[in-house]
Design a binder for these strands. Sequence first.
DNA 1: AAATTATTGTGTACTATTGACACATTCCAA
DNA 2: TTGGAATGTGTCAATAGTACACAATAATTT
Lengths: 236, 236
Amino acid sequence: MTRYEHPTRILVAIDCIIFGFDGEELDLLLIKRNFEPEKGKWSLMGGFLNETEDLEKGAERILYDLTGLKNIFVEQIGTFGKVSRDPVERTLSVVFFALINIADHDQEAVKAHNANWITLGKKPKLIFDHDDMVRMALEHLRYNAALHPLGFELLPERFTIPQLQKLYEAIYDMKLDRRNFSRKILSTGLLIDTGEKDENSTTKKAGLFRLDRERYQKKFYSFWNFIPNPALPEAL
Amino acid sequence: MTRYEHPTRILVAIDCIIFGFDGEELDLLLIKRNFEPEKGKWSLMGGFLNETEDLEKGAERILYDLTGLKNIFVEQIGTFGKVSRDPVERTLSVVFFALINIADHDQEAVKAHNANWITLGKKPKLIFDHDDMVRMALEHLRYNAALHPLGFELLPERFTIPQLQKLYEAIYDMKLDRRNFSRKILSTGLLIDTGEKDENSTTKKAGLFRLDRERYQKKFYSFWNFIPNPALPEAL
DNA sequence: AAATTATTGTGTACTATTGACACATTCCAA
DNA sequence: TTGGAATGTGTCAATAGTACACAATAATTT
């Protein structure tokens, strides 16, 4: 096969920031790196892109290989390419971001792969520029959850409004008014009342809702202005 | 130098979508490709990333080489990596998006490099997946101009409010109410009245404003909710 | 020089949305 | 049965958004 004359071909990695929600705080799925350099240090889920593999497929493969998880929400959020970002050789890293609802997924599979859910607030220092990637991913999450009904990806199929509120409070690290939140979320018309109650509760059982998947497509922009003044930048 | 054992290294290109504003419509800076394949066809500004070059530097270099333009606003918007996107060999393309105010820049330099400003509405078909890139860039512009005071990058140093309004109308392909627009834009506190008038006008001369660069930093999030319901997706 | 036309600058009334807050209800446990 | 903790719903004032009307300016026409 003929090739372009340009001399430089570069190693391409894929790194994944995986967010989960444990009901109280945002969690990250991290792994202890099992090869040199920086072996044993905390790292994002990552791997190298194969010659015959699309970027998104690569991200899904890496997620599956390292966690046993399939069919999860992934989205590309950027590419990191500083010349010296990897000490071994120049490596471009295409960064993906994934949202998982912890409850509905197989915890054993995750553990068997040596992956760990770690609360965002307790995140250890990560290798290379992975901290920057996490920062970017959180910013991406904050942007997108303010504009689109994205948070549902982090919740189980059926959820209560107070759960949803806690999720938003975790994402934006702010308190929201219970009554105003409820009014606003219901007015989107995206929630279907299942009529059931959350049996796990020890006080008044909250009603269980589920996402109206049909309207979700049509009203993907309905969250525009959902969060008044999200604390978007910096953080962490 | 030791290298990773992974066998695949990939050619990395950089492509730039350059938006300009001619006072009426959004323009794209396009070029006729001067090498095979697809030689002579319309294309985005592009080139290959060098071994010792950061991504952003590469984008700036390519912009300068192909247009003679320097110091322009660039931002990475994504990476395209479909296995078959380039028929010659697998090539990843990191896509940047740039905003230029046409009036203040050197038109001769642009022409000398065989680059052409083309109205977005009259965009010819582009090579490879460049049409998808333009679509993504427009979406990116629409998102960001609705959330942040980004439009100013497309206007000259001093501009009138009607000019600014026409820019927004071009970006979102919608009409805005003159009076409400004026009220809203002035209430951001980002505009400084220079006291001067636009002498180019043949009717009532509009007042010239300039951006308050200091507040621009501090109020980068003040445009949140500036455009009511931007027509965000599809387009083109 | 007055009238005309096109465009700019400012104001006002009405409606919708937001933010701050109160009260009644449900469930479990003491 | 009573109290604590959480949920569901409602009210009101303030804010912001929408749809308008009218006066002012500059060049051109009569």
